[in-house]
Each structure stands twice: as structure tokens, then as C-alpha cells.
Nucleic acid binder design. Sequence first.
DNA 1: TTTCATACGTCCT
DNA 2: CGTATGAAA
Length: 823
Amino acid sequence: MGISGLLPLLKDIQVTRPLSDFAGQTIAVDAYVWLHKGTYGCAAELATGRRTHKYVDYAMHRVRLLRHHRIQPYVVFDGGPLPAKQGTESERKKRRDENLARANAFAAQGKHTQAREYYVKCIDVTPQMAYQLIKALRAEGIPYVVAPYEADAQLAYLERIGVVDGVITEDSDLLVFGCRKVLLKLDVVESVVTCISRGDFGSAGAAGGMPLLGWSDAQFRRMAILSGCDYLASIPGVGLKTAWSLLRKHKTVENAVRMLMLEGKKKVPDGYLDAFKLAERVFLYQRVYDPRQKRLVHLTEPAEGERLDAETDAYVGSDIEPALAKQVAEGDACPISLLPMDDINATFVPRALKTIPLNVKDARMPGGGKATGSRQNVGKGTVGILSFFKPRAEGSSGQQTATSHAPGHSITAGRASGKRTLAEVMDHDIAVKRKKQEGAQREGPSREVRNSKFFDVRQSSFGGEDEDAIASEEPDYPVAGPSRITLDAGKDKENVPCADDDEVFMEDAGAVEQEDGYISPSPSMRRWDSPEVSSPLRVRSGAQLDVEEEEDFGADILSSPPVAARQTRFSMNMDAARATSVVSHDGGIVLVPNTPSKRERRRRGHHARNDGAGPDLQHILGECDWEWDDRTSDIECSGPLDPSPSSASTSSGPVTPSDIPSQGEADACAQALTEAEDTDEVTNSQNAAARHAKVAHGWWERWGRGARSPAVAPPQTPLKRRETTITPEGRHRPLQQRRPQSATNNSKHKGKQQNLHSAGRRRSLVFTETVKKTPRGGLLRGTSSRPDTANSEQGEDSAGASRNRFAEFRWAGVEDSVGPCRI
DNA sequence: TTTCATACGTCCT
DNA sequence: CGTATGAAA
Ligand SMILES: [Mn+2]
């Protein structure tokens, strides 16, 4: 949804720019779009529970495209649902289930084309799917972060603090969140993007009769909210144009709404102003993860003197204890369940292809990439590899600006055969686009132009023997360090670090059968491989963990902390866990043994995806107790995120947008909010209801398939203020105070009223877990990765995968959850 | 004239 | 998520 009509309104200032314009910059990427588009190519597989990683390939292709243009991607994932977002879920879920049923029906008849049509409509991108992409990002050293809540706010924050220079997304909300540079509609064939710059707003809207010249960020934001946003449905009959007119005439929302009510032409829902204030606060103060401080912060820190009341504080996303927040941000914990990330496809072990373990001093490939002999050297040279990775880890704490370059620390290198590979890839892209255009219009006139552009790009980018240009400009971004480097060059020759020869590599890699049954001549990333954007060499870690059916997609030495790398291989013996019942380490962890009742499990639903043909990981991995690789445990691994506080050194982001009204954004907002505050303190039923209005896209809607109305939750006793913070001991999630029936609905003015839950009390979730202290101080939790798949029943409540984890835990009263219940 | 509802597309071995 | 389209207010 975003803001309806906003992008058309800004069409005047939308400029198409080549990706090369952003060379040297770090651009944040809204991963959801790529993931979702990527699922279209494997919708049936996903819907039927078959393992696949095509959507990862799709996203990585784009990642590599950016890197090809010297752009450093910074991938941002959606996180947990905002407390505010308790939206219409059952309706969507029903539609998905219907579509799935229809798709399966068609599939049963062999009508796969029609089946796919419905398969794509029941796909839901889950955090576990996002984790598959994260694994690939780790393997290639691409920085990323999982937002605690909405990616929108996280993206805006990264830009604001100067960690990134712009944002690639399709969501107009980013502008409302204060992004200065928003890039949409990435065209992989033309290598262009549509760019909207906040600085150009002054010249926008003139054509449409609603110029934005002189509008402050605050005014712009309020116009957007007034016209209807994700957090608040608009007053019926009010759209962008009307919102613009109202604010232009009345300046403040209060006045505008007052006028509307006096006129009586429009029905202003009771409590609208209050809801508006809350919605604006979500845009302003939503919690995000600060990769430098490694903790949650507000997108904008509330101005001095303004304190967010407890309710608002929860509304913008509850705080999460730093250690846990870090795990979520780095993909080690599910942002929804806050439990250790479940690797739904452990057989997918992405690796960076064709990476050259370059000598730090000699990053350039000999002969423009013809380093045929380097493979063996690399493979045996453990020392060389270590020396290769070492600077990466160290560099992560050093230079950190987005545009900084690390000439000596190249992690990529081209190969002679790379051109061909890239050409193939681009040929394919062009073919796809041509196909698309042919479908739309007969005879495209610009075909030759496209080709020309293509060749120009190729030549200028990596033609000749200038591969190291890329290598030298590769920012030495802090990425996941090698968790373990164990060479087993003796046995698994195919796992020996590859040379830079395409053919040789493919031969070594051998044919592998992918999840989808296709036989690929080489591992997963062959297809989209392009040398200049290839990544660090990865070293296969032998077969210390034998997993049945494991496909060798490569090793994961670059995959972050040992914890993460290991988690996917674990499957905790639940019996042992129950017997132990409690394990406490110095973290002081709550451990509540629990076995949910059958009824409860039914109520909470099951993992839809594994109900079908999907294999049960528990069976694949077997049941085992914790296993720990001591060899790696003492390696301090730098996370994928920027550990350095000097990131924003170059461009001190516009923390406070210097706007035309020259009024500090925070001040202006504080003022506006305090104004509204005066007339606040109303707890009437309708205003509370309005807060639940309009909950559209976002994680909850996208991923929160298993959303449960708190109404069905067991009654709980109130929590104290402290419990509003989420800690490793448990997610203490206070519910909003009583929220009676609403006057407005999430879906914009749909006649049907939503039966809003009303939980009179707060509750707290306590989950059981065993922990393992890691060298890096993190907490390993040995909860079973998939507790209930065995009991899954098709057709039953197919809740999101992560939500299933709740089945392993229980809702506990406050007496169990007040503070860390040390045992 | 503006809003609102609906349909459609995103992939592509 | 977006765009496009057409009908209704
Ligand atoms: Mn959004």
C-alpha cells in the first residue's frame, strides 16, 4: 500500500539514472521486494513444501548486479510485527488457503500452468526464507541487517546516520520516513533505477495542481498520513489531494480535522486525532537497530523533554535487550519468535564462487584473471587463506565509510572466463525483458539500443584486463568472519577452493541435484555468477557434520558466527531437554519445561510449509544433543554489520532534515505532538479503536500469517514497566490496553467491521530454552528447530513457521515472567 | 474532480 | 508492493 497516489504525484521529479551514477556508494536494499519477486519463479515448490532456493538466486543476482556497478548493497530485511499491527489476518490467510487448495486441485489434474497461477497467490515470505538469502549474503560478504520491526524504518535510519547513501525499495513509505534518496524500479537489463530525491520535492506536484514547494518534512508526512497510510486509514473521502488542500489551508492537522467536522461533509471517526498522533509517532519513533551501537534505538530520538508514554513506547516497537537484538539483526534469531533461527533448508549452503584467495598485497589476478594455477595453491594453503581472511576481519573495525575502499583487501577478482559468464547472464536478462515487452507491445523499437547499452556496460565495467579495478574499489566491508576454517583438501577435492577457471570449477563442482530436482552442472550460483561480483573464497569445512542428503553448495566459512553456522545443524533432543528441564548459564535464562497440549498446538497452528512433501528436518538431521566445534569457538567473528562507529564519518547523515521551514524536524514534531497531547488523555473506546485502523503491509501482513488475536490468549496479569522490554529471557509483550470495537477498519473503508480483540490484561510469553554460552558472548539456544512438524496436519491451521515455535512454549503468568526467572 | 474498488503483475532451466 | 482502469461519490 504505502501511500496511494504518492509516487504518481512525484512523477515530475522521478528521474531515471544509470546505476553507474551510484558507483562508490552504499545503497540499502529492501530485501522483501526481491524475495517476493523471487518466489514467483518457485511458487509451486514453496507452496508444496519442496526445498528450493531460487528466490535466493534471484536476489543474489541483483546483489551482484549492484556490485558490478561498484555499488555496495546493504540488504535490509523486515523484522517482527509492530505491536500496532494486529491487522486483518484471518481474511488473508483464508484467501491464501483457498488459493493453495485451488492450486493443488489444478496440479492434481496436471494443469500446472493454472496451478501456478494460484500457487503464486499463496506464497508468504517468511523470516526463514529470508535467512536463506542471509546465508548467501554472508557467503559473499554482503552487509545486511534484519530490522527489529519494519524494514522501512530501518532503511530510513541507515540512510539518516550515513551508513548508506540511498535506499532501493518499491515502497513510497520510505519518503514519509524521511529518506532523502529513494531508488525504485531497478532495471537489471538497462542497469537503471528511478530516483526520487527529497531535495527535489520543491519542484514536484506542480503539474498535478498540488505543488510541494515549501513543504517541510513534517507537513509532507502529515499529508501522507492524512491521505491514508499503513497505520491509519484516511477519513473517508479524503485522499492525497484533499489532504494536501487541507494542510495547505489549515496548516495543522488539528485545525484541518476541526474544519472537517464543522463542515460535516465528511465523517471523521471519533478519536481520529488521537490515532493520527500515534500513527505519526510510528513514522517518527519506530525502533530500529543501530549497527554501530548494536542495540535498538528510535528512528528519531524523541526531543528533549518529550517522553514516550509506555503505550506509545510499545506501539513503536518494544525495546529488545541488546544481545538478543543483535542476534535478530544478524539473522541468528527469528525476528518474530525471537528464538534461534531455523534453517528450513540446511542443505542449501551457499558459497561464493570463483573467488580468488588473493594475496592481500596482490589482489590483481594475473593475466586479467587467468590464474589457472592458483587453485591448488589456494586449496592447500591454509595459511594463505587465513591471511586472506584476516584482513577482512580486522578491516571491519577500521575504515568504515560507505565509500571507502580497501585496495589491498580485495575479496573478489575477475577471471578470464568471467566475461562469458556475465554475458550469458545478461543475455538471459535481456531475453527475459524482450519477452516481457513482446508480450506487452509488438515490436519494441529500442532493442538495438538495449544491446548497445549492454555492450557499453560490459566493456566499461570489466572489459580488458581491468578486473582489479573492481577489486580495488571493493569496500572492505565488515562481514561475517570465518567461523571455522578447516581444510580437508585430501578427500573432497571438489571442495578444494576453486581456481578461477570456469570450466575447471564446474568440473570440480560436478553436477548436483537441486531441491527442485534439476540437475545443475554446478552449484546454486552458477547461473547468476558474474566474476567481478563474486565473493570471497570459501573453504569447505570437511565433513565434520555429516548430514544426510546434504548438497554441496559450498562451505560456509564466511557464514557468521559459529553460532549461526552451527545452529542449522542442530536438532535438540527434546526429551533430554525436558528431562533437564532447566539449564542456566551466567546469562540467567528462563527455562520452563513445557509440552503444549494437543489442543493448544492445534490452536496455534502448524508449519504449513512442512506439512506437505517437505522433509522433516528433524529426521534429516537426526536428533542429537549439542555439538560444538571447539576449533572455531575461539574465533571472534565479526558480524555482518558494521562494528565500527566511524561509519558515518564521511557523510554525517541528515539527522535533522534541514527543511525549508528551517524548523528542526524533531522540534516541530515535538511541538505538534505536545499540542495534540494537551487534548489527549481520552481513553474513549473509539479513539482506541482507531489505533488499530489501517494496518496494511509490513511484516505482519507479509509474514505474520499465523497472527493470533490476543483475545484468544490466556488471561494474564499485568506486567510491570520493565517487562515491556524483550530480553533473552523471554519476549515480554504487553498488550495495549483495552481496545474496544473500532469505528475504522484496517482495510480502507470496507464495510465490514473488524472485530477487534480486547484483552483486558497483559501477558507475557515465556519460552523454554537451553542455552550454550559462546565465546563471543552470545547465547545459544538449543530449542528444537522444528518442534511440531511431526504433528503437522495438512489443512489445519497453517500458521507461519516461526510462530510454530510457540507451540513449544507456554503462556505464562506474570509470576513466571517478572524479570529473569533464574532457576 | 477525486476517491475507491478491482484486476493484474512480479518469475521464467 | 506498484500500476492501471473504470465506476461511484
Ligand atoms: Mn511500508
